[in-house]
Amino acid sequence: MLTATDLACVRGDRRLFSGLGFALAPGAWIYLTGENGSGKTSLLRILVGLSPAEAGEIRWGGVPIARLGDEYRRAVTYLGHHNALKEELTARENLCTGAALAGVKLDAARADALLAEVGLAGREELPARFLSQGQKRRVSLARLLWSESPLWILDEPFVALDAAAVAWLASTLAAHLAGGGMAILTSHQEVLIPGSTMQTLRLAA
């Protein structure tokens, strides 16, 4: 259960939002919308604990996230604008090292199986710089498959994905939510996740 109360964010001398609050229960997800520059990414970065909020409080299971530390970081998987891939490493190496940095052991066989699931079978040995934008995004999204975090915070996860990958991500999200997971995501396109409880949070510019 994630609750935010009275959040405010200031960038430069511009107040992006203030008095923002919500509660996210297991099995539900928040669709965060707003124009360019309305503070969607800033809000997500505050929610994962990368940047401090100007005012307000975020609680996970009733405890402020600053006090939870690595317990909260274990509960959250965040995918930002950047794919967090090393251009020099292959798709498989990227997936394995990405997991290792989070303290999760992922062997090559399991990594290959996950890459096949995101539609990259046969591309395991290809350095990431030879992958297309959409394929990089798929490698990046494969992290959701080994993640055991109940809360997924995804910044524009659908960008650069083709129709098949969009459908795959929607069904992956649906399965995650059906299993009691939570998600917060931003998107400029309509997102349909079958059989889920959606809250829309609109940031005004």
Binding site: E71, R73, R74, H82, G103
Partner: peptide, 13 residues
Amino acid sequence: ADGTLEQMALSPV
């Protein structure tokens, strides 16, 4: 630049 530092900062490690 490629976002891996962000993931390191968010890692439970």
